[in-house]
Computed example of a mutant assay.
Amino acid sequence: MKLIFAGTPEFAAQALQAIIAAGHEVALVLTQPDRAAGRGMVLRASPVKGLALAAGIEVLQPQTLKDAATQERIRAIAAEVIVVAAYGLILPQAVLEVPRLGCLNIHASLLPRWRGAAPIQRAIMAGDAETGICIMQMDAGLDTGPVLLCGRLPIDRSDTAASLHDKLARLGARLIVEALAGLPLTAQPQAETGVTYAAKIGKDEAGLDWRLPAAMLAARVRAFNPFPGACCALGGDLFKLWRADAVEGTGLPGEILSADREGLVIACGDGALRVTELQKAGGKRLSAAQFLAGTRLLPGSRCALPTT
């Protein structure tokens, strides 16, 4: 099948690799413009661009898909289908109408739950027992199109956004190849009930409110690993918490109940949070045992509460 692929991060690159391996002709790849990254703010190509160039595929990096020149280039390919995975740009109606078999999106949730930009993180934050991949026929709405193929995946209690991302990326790569092989497929409209939206994760969400239940805070630590990293302030220093679980404990919200090789136990609104991996601003990620070997934290001291 002749197709166009639109995607940017590693999640999308795995799907592109699977499509190439399946023998499809990827005639054009659309990806986000190179971004400055790292301490040196050096321009870096997206994982999808790197893979496409290595495979000898033409790459287009428009700022928008609304301009006439870009749309004409897409039409000139005469692709049968456009596959989209975490691209980052909205496909206007003029582009959605180009391919004969439409535009297929690889979405990392069980639609209609968690439409939007951050379905993996929001599913963990909400304590969902499962998630999955939906191969969706795109329309003008925000992840509102009918579903062609769906795969489910349990969310383990130890899953972080990073580990769940990797599992879903593998599932998405497998399902898009299966969907392409079976086209045209029967499209199932999404249910009108159970709709939720997964807003983009912002750094302003990273600060932990110790008045919340420990189970909720443990879910946020997992959801914010690796970005933006759950944060707390103690004694004027900022810390990022990378691994934690909810345990029994009683104290003032934010109060350190114990600090030993087993972890740093901090009282919450209900229960306590045992932190087993953390990082001081400017330092390295360390286990609780390693961290406490160089930093003394006394029981009774308190992590700061949000000011708002």
Rank of each mutant, 00 (worst) to 15 (best):
L286Q: 15
L252T: 13
I124G: 11
A293V: 00
A161W: 07
A79D: 07
G294D: 07
R170W: 02
G50F: 00
R296W: 07
T31H: 10
L241S: 03
T8E: 00
A52G: 07
D139M: 05
R157L: 11
I120K: 00
R302L: 15
K167R: 15
A108D: 05
P119E: 09
G283A: 08
W114D: 04
A108S: 14
L292S: 05
R296D: 12
W210V: 13
P62T: 12
R220M: 14
L168E: 01
Q290L: 05
V265H: 01
Q188R: 10
L234K: 02
G7S: 10
E248R: 11
R302F: 14
R35E: 12
A69N: 03
A76F: 12
P189A: 09
T31Y: 13
I82Y: 01
A191N: 11
I135F: 04
P62L: 12
A18P: 15
A94G: 06
L264W: 04
P112I: 02
V59C: 14
G283L: 05
T250K: 07
S109Q: 03
A272W: 09
Q188T: 13
R157V: 09
M136S: 00
I155M: 01
A76Q: 13
M138P: 06
I155R: 01
Q17F: 09
E80I: 02
R174P: 00
E130W: 04
H24F: 05
A12S: 14
L3M: 07
K240R: 13
M216K: 10
R211N: 15
K66L: 12
L30I: 14
F291P: 05
F227S: 13
L43Q: 09
E192Y: 08
F291C: 04
I4A: 03
E72H: 08
L65E: 08
D143M: 00
G141F: 07
V48R: 01
G300M: 12
G102R: 00
R100M: 03
Q279T: 11
L273R: 06
T196R: 09
R73Y: 10
G249A: 12
D156T: 10
P9T: 02
I256A: 06
Q279S: 05
A233C: 09
D260Q: 06
R243T: 00
A214P: 15
